[in-house]
Nucleic acid binder design. Structure first.
Length: 592
DNA sequence: GCCGTTTTCGGCCCGACTGTTTTCAGTCG
């Protein structure tokens, strides 16, 4: 059970910070979450309203004169608690309740349609304690078969979470990019437009972004900024000048448009793509070369003469560099590499030839095996690796041995009907707390591949987690390590582990590392990919798809792979069907 | 936990609505 840590002291008593009414209200909520007698929590709500009505000053007076107990709605118990609160500034009962309930549950209560009973049920049955965990559970269809829940509730919760996120100010890359592209297309409809491009963190494929940056060129900047601020999807204009406008979109995200002249475009695009660290390093370099760079151009220091650049390639070349793709512009060594013409030749979306890590209705996927296979066939994939959950993932309808056997049979039959797609029979096996896998060896060895993943006991201490993962990686049947750190973006930190040791164990055992492309995971982190590449490890970009639409997430995975300097050769599922089948067979020979 | 007595414990506001369930539970206002 999760316990909330001691609240950090913000100075002053809990009373000064929150007010008596707020505290009573919170007690009411916590009692409901704990499943107490509903009339008891109602008594606290009612007392909270009463206290709100009489006001803090009057409340203090009544307490000092011991007349509070005469107020209707305040009986002996609440009277006693308010006395303690007013006279000492704190309330033991409240502090104790708070410690027994994860504070994130209050966040979940903000989801429209979720009250204390349902939140409590989610906590009891699925151990959900945060919005991010709730969202993930919905995406994996965990709520569909939960008593009192269903598909519709799950969809509504997802909508509700999105609603809350809108106002939190940080967005998943995939969602922000989707909105940015809509905006981009709208701007392209401006009649006197020169050029326009995404810029900023979205262009750099950061996994989390705060806003949308766009750069455009035109001879009529004032008209373009006005056009931009008057677009129908703009909810609010934050700033509006002749060359720059900031707006908030209906979806809550902010968007900045910077407008320059046509001959300034390439410089501005580079400048507003960033990162700040990349730009700083580049300005430094320019200065050493007797040049100056800013959003308006590249100039010779001695006479302020412009160095003409038609595009970003010209700009980099003028600085003695090869073109640096936007994803790499983080001052992570890209400038040094570009100087030596040693930048990687980054993987492209079209390099992906097949997909691993797909769930079906056998466990918690939304689509049947046949729907998945047909979809892959339509997409032109050469192979698809089916991997439903294993038996101890009971929350996800994990497969018992006999279910696995049945699925194997169905796959055999389907292979005849879909000869153009290699249907690989696998499983996503839970890594148990001791590092063992979830089926007997004989069962695992019959499969074409095994993804080993941690799904529970995420907060294990570091040394144990290292041992757990390293032990799992040493199992000869393991083909891939699924979502290696278990982080959820905007919601859950990585498990504690020594990532280099885990990578080394994967290398020693010939295990492929998954780059889980689910937008909330993007696990592995791009910051680790460079190390992985240098170690000579192989990565597989897996959508972890629970529905057909999620196959699209593979693109996000490719974006992150690019950001992590990966080339086609570093990624397992860029290989042909024959190569992949060959690899899996050779693993098999080793296992058997 | 409060109230109001039937002075010691039983009742506590409720209707619309949704979604799940098939007669009801939970949320919202």
């Amino acid at each position: 059970m999760l316990l909330v840590a001691e609240m950090p002291s913000l100075g002053g008593s809990v009373l000064e910070r929150e007010g008596a009414a707020k505290i009573l209200e919170e007690i009411g909520i916590m009692l409901e979450l704990k499943g107490e007698n509903p009339f008891k929590s109602r008594a606290y709500y009612s007392a909270a309203r009463t206290v709100e009505l009489i006001g803090e000053e009057e409340l203090e007076r009544l307490v000092r004169e011991d007349k509070l107990k005469d107020v209707k709605g305040i009986g002996s118990a609440i009277n006693k608690k308010l006395k303690e609160l007013i006279l000492t500034g704190r309330l033991n009962y409240y502090e104790e309740l708070k410690v027994s309930i994860p504070k994130e549950l209050f966040e979940i209560l903000k989801v429209p349609g979720l009250g204390p009973r349902k939140v409590s049920a989610l906590y009891e049955m699925l151990e959900i304690t945060s919005l991010a965990e709730l969202e993930y559970a919905c995406r994996e269809n965990r709520l569909v078969n939960l008593k009192g829940f269903g598909k519709k509730t799950q969809d509504n919760i997802l909508e509700g979470i999105e609603f809350i996120r809108r106002y939190q100010g940080r967005y998943f890359y995939s969602e922000a990019r989707r909105l940015a592209i809509i905006l981009l297309h709208k701007i392209k409809e401006f009649p006197a437009l020169g050029e326009v491009s995404l810029a900023g963190s979205i262009r750099r494929c950061r996994e989390i972004v705060k806003d949308i940056d766009l750069v455009a060129s035109t001879d009529h900047p004032d008209r373009l900024t006005r056009y931009f601020t008057e677009l129908p999807l703009v909810a609010e204009v934050i700033a509006h000048g002749d060359t720059k406008a900031s707006v908030r979109l209906d979806d809550g995200i902010n968007a900045d448009l910077r407008v320059v002249t046509k001959d300034q475009f390439s410089y501005a695009l580079h400048h507003f793509t960033g990162s700040k660290e990349h730009n700083t390093a580049l300005r430094h370099r320019a200065k050493n070369m007797g040049l100056k760079i800013n959003e308006y151009g590249l100039f010779r220091l001695k006479d302020e003469e412009l160095v003409a650049c038609r595009d970003e390639t010209d700009l980099f070349n003028a600085l003695g560099l090869t073109y640096i793709p936007p994803e790499l512009r983080e001052n992570y060594g890209e400038i040094e590499a570009a100087e030596e013409n040693a930048l990687p030749s980054l993987i492209e979306e079209d390099d992906i030839r097949g997909i691993f890590h797909v769930h079906t209705t056998y466990s918690d996927g939304l689509n049947t095996l046949e729907e998945v296979v047909r979809h892959c066939s339509v997409l032109g994939y050469e192979y698809v690796g089916i991997s439903d959950h294993s038996q101890s993932a009971f929350y996800a309808g994990g497969l018992k041995e006999e279910d696995l056997a049945k699925q194997h049979e169905e796959i055999e039959a389907m292979r005849e009907r879909y000869p153009n797609v290699a249907i690989l029979c696998g499983v996503e096996s839970d890594i148990r707390a001791d590092g063992s896998l979830d089926y007997p060896d004989a069962v695992l060895e019959r499969l074409d591949f095994v993804i080993a993943s941690v799904h529970s006991g995420l907060r294990m201490e570091r040394v144990k987690m290292n041992e757990r993962l390293i032990h799992a990686l040493s199992h000869p049947a393991v083909t891939m390590l699924g979502h290696p750190t278990n982080r959820l973006l905007l919601g859950r930190d990585s498990s504690l582990l020594d990532i280099e040791k885990v990578f080394q164990a994967a290398l020693d055992n010939g295990v492929i590392l998954e780059l889980n492309a689910s937008p909330a995971r993007l696990d592995l982190d791009w910051r680790h990919l460079k190390m992985i590449r240098e170690m000579g490890l192989m990565v597989s970009i897996n959508p972890d798809a629970h529905r057909l639409e999620s196959f699209e997430d593979t693109r996000v995975g490719v974006a992150i792979a690019r950001k992590g300097w990966l080339e086609k050769k570093d990624v397992f599922n860029t290989r042909s069907r024959r190569e992949v089948e060959g690899h899996l067979k050779s693993r098999h020979a080793r296992a058997g």
